[in-house]
Design a protein around this nucleic acid. Structure first.
Lengths: 114, 114
DNA sequence: CCGTATCCGGGCAGATACTG
DNA sequence: CAGTATCTGCCCGGATACGG
């Protein structure tokens, strides 16, 4: 579907969705440390199936956060890396950590009081 | 369920979920401008039903982002406002806007090239 | 090695009707 | 006025099987 004005909701919502996938923060964490092959990511994050990993990586690519590089060799080789724009997201993610930790601390205190 | 170590996933994911509800950014936008009554929010955001608005507000309250104040009068009066912690989220949200706008600009350029 | 195709189950958002 | 109760539909993540 071609772009039309207003076809995406408010930018905040769009941004949240770009990072909001179940495994995206984790994938990004791995890729911030350097380029990784598909199988490497799969080994580094064993809880995610290849299917889901593929989907999440494609969405990150679609968002311009991750670059996918295919080497037409046999056997095939595919490398994933963070784009320049993707690197700019690291501070935001780090702030999200603080937000999440605040909530976790909140719940922990609530329990400790009982 | 009482708090147990590790019962919430990685903090980034938690943080994303805290803000990730369909209407939460919009609600927060309204509340950043000041305290609002339930009905006011409902009028300011006509696309959301009372049911969903209630759910989202309760989740924001649960996250410690929003405070709910009930006046036991007839007719009932309920006011919602941003907590101190909630105010600390404004910069993160603003960064998310930049992220979202980058994506929207990306899609726009892709279409313009055809 | 790096995927695609297909099906399935749970959770969240929406619509609608009712209430202290 | 500010909700609750109930039902429904959809999307996303997960499991499994197959393919270049």
């Amino acid at each position: 579907m071609p772009y039309q004005d207003g076809m995406y909701g408010c930018p905040v919502e769009v941004g949240l969705q770009m990072l909001g996938g179940k495994w995206k923060p984790r994938i990004l964490f791995e890729l911030f440390q350097g380029t990784r092959r598909f199988g490497e990511l799969n080994r580094l994050i064993p809880q995610v199936s290849r299917h889901v990993l593929t989907v999440q990586l494609r969405e990150l690519e679609e968002s311009g956060i991750v670059e996918r590089k295919v080497y037409p060799s046999v056997p095939p080789k595919v490398e994933y890396s963070i784009t320049e724009f993707g690197k700019s997201l690291q501070p935001v993610l780090e702030q999200m950590i603080a937000v999440g930790e605040h909530y976790i601390g909140l719940k922990k205190r609530e329990t400790d009081l009982r």
